[in-house]
């Protein structure tokens, strides 16, 4: 079952990053919805694995290829969805996942029939120009480092909290983990879409089990609060450094969200 989980994890990332890479708002939004469904598949699979006294990990075997146009992304996604069909469990959950995937395949096929959808992809061109803003190089560099650091961190948080949520019997903990996961999904999406604008979209690197297997929850939460404080500081520094009102407001908004994460995490202590 770990193999199914691993493939679903990879598919969640593939759908998410297809959504981030494509700029057409309608396609982006629809694919993002499918990615969230795929993430729930992961959650349900993990629950079944643990119920059967099995285990799973976050290993993955994938690359984010620098595709040139929308159809290249969609064709690759279609192949990946088709290839996974044979390994789903033969039960109610497996049936549900297959019908979700069949609908995704139908959607992709519809998109592929219309040549107007085949726009160039600029998410990987490394141009590092942000919209029509003429940011100086030092601000672009600072933004670049921030986005790489924080997109990894949000991906890490999603998976670490999901790992702990799957193992807790405490309702408060379960709820807090869910809130934190939802918040990190939003942050990851926001940062990844900004990386697309800059032409530097990249997969967050794989998590090592040293990161997500937690022996001491209290210590983990205390460390997590310290990390949130650091993230807040990074947002504030970036907001101060970037002389652009729109971007500064966005990073202030993220900064205030981190404040509430700390409150949520304190509930776990």
């Amino acid at each position: 079952m770990n193999k199914v989980f691993q493939k679903k994890h990879e598919l969640w990332l593939s759908i998410s990053f297809a959504s981030y890479a494509i700029k057409d708002e309608a396609i982006k939004s629809k694919l993002y919805d499918f990615s969230q469904i795929a993430f729930r598949h992961m959650k349900w699979l993990s629950s079944e694995i643990l119920k059967a006294n099995g285990n799973y990990n976050y290993d993955r075997d994938m690359m984010l290829y620098k595709r040139e146009n929308v159809f290249e992304i969609l064709e690759a996604l279609k192949d990946e969805v088709k290839n996974i069909q044979g390994i789903y469990p033969d039960n109610v959950l497996g049936g549900r996942i297959k019908t979700d995937d069949a609908y995704l395949l139908e959607y992709i096929s519809t998109l592929l029939k219309d040549e107007n959808n085949n726009k160039p992809i600029t998410a990987f061109n490394m141009q590092r120009k942000f919209l029509d803003k003429n940011l100086p190089q030092d601000q672009i560099d600072a933004l670049t480092m921030f986005l790489f650091d924080e997109s990894y961190k949000e991906y890490e948080l999603i998976l670490v909290y999901a790992y702990m949520q799957a193992r807790t019997k405490d309702i408060t903990q379960f709820d807090v983990f869910q809130d934190l996961i939802d918040e990190s999904h939003f942050h990851l999406k926001s940062f990844a879409n900004m990386m697309t604008e800059l032409g530097i979209l990249a997969l967050p690197r794989q998590l090592h089990e040293m990161t997500y297997i937690v022996d001491d929850l209290d210590q983990f939460i205390k460390d997590g609060i310290a990390e949130e404080e650091a993230a807040k500081e990074m947002c504030k520094e970036l907001s101060d450094a970037i002389k652009d009102e729109e971007l500064s407001k966005f990073f202030d908004f993220i900064n205030f969200q981190e404040n509430y994460h700390i409150k949520l995490m304190q509930k776990l202590l």
């Binding site: 490394m126 190089q137 030092d138 560099d141 670049t144 790489f148 530097i200 990249a202």
Partner: peptide, 13 residues
């Protein structure tokens, strides 16, 4: 972080 080279960016991505 200043003056990031293309090589550094490739290692990041």
């Amino acid at each position: 972080p200043e003056g990031m080279s293309a090589e550094t960016l490739e290692h990041l991505m």
